[in-house]
Computed example of a mutant assay.
Amino acid sequence: MNEYSWPDNGVEAGARYRAAWPATCRALPVGSPVTGEVVGRRPFGVFMAIDNVPDAIGLAEITAMPPGAVLPSIGTRVSGRVVCHAGHNHQVRIELDASEAGT
């Protein structure tokens, strides 16, 4: 698997995220602290599996990271906070803690 591959069948994962979306939003309100593992990297940010919310996917975009930040590698444990819910694609947007963003 390279750094831009997806660890799960995207169609199956997407269906799970969509079905769990109302529960995800209740479990992870804006401002909530989150921890999890980086499961995917893209040039624009990292996707993370969020601890204790198995059918949720978090996205930490590079634009929300401090200047000079380096994207964490797949498998890295990270923490941050929920900044918004992107309902159109069922993603929890995350701002990583400065120490997590490789600054």
Rank of each mutant, 00 (worst) to 15 (best):
R41P: 00
I74G: 12
A69M: 04
N52Q: 14
A13L: 13
S79H: 14
V82A: 09
A60C: 11
S5R: 11
I74D: 09
T35E: 15
G58W: 02
Y17S: 03
W21F: 05
H88I: 01
A27H: 10
G58P: 03
C84D: 11
P43G: 08
V78G: 00
G14C: 03
R81I: 01
N2L: 12
G14E: 04
A19M: 08
L28I: 06
S5A: 15
P72L: 08
G80V: 07
Q91E: 12
V82T: 05
L28M: 05
A23M: 05
H90R: 09
Y4I: 01
V70N: 09
G36T: 07
V83P: 00
A86E: 15
A20N: 13
V78S: 02
P29D: 07
E12I: 02
G75R: 10
C84H: 12
R81A: 10
A20M: 07
P22R: 09
A69Q: 01
I62K: 13
A101C: 08
R41C: 01
A98Q: 07
F47H: 08
R26S: 14
V34L: 10
A49W: 07
V53Q: 03
Q91N: 11
R77S: 14
I50S: 06
G45R: 02
V78D: 02
V11H: 13
N9A: 05
P7C: 07
C84T: 14
S79P: 12
H88F: 11
A60I: 03
D51S: 15
G58F: 02
A60M: 07
S73H: 11
A69K: 05
A98R: 10
A15M: 12
F44C: 00
I50H: 06
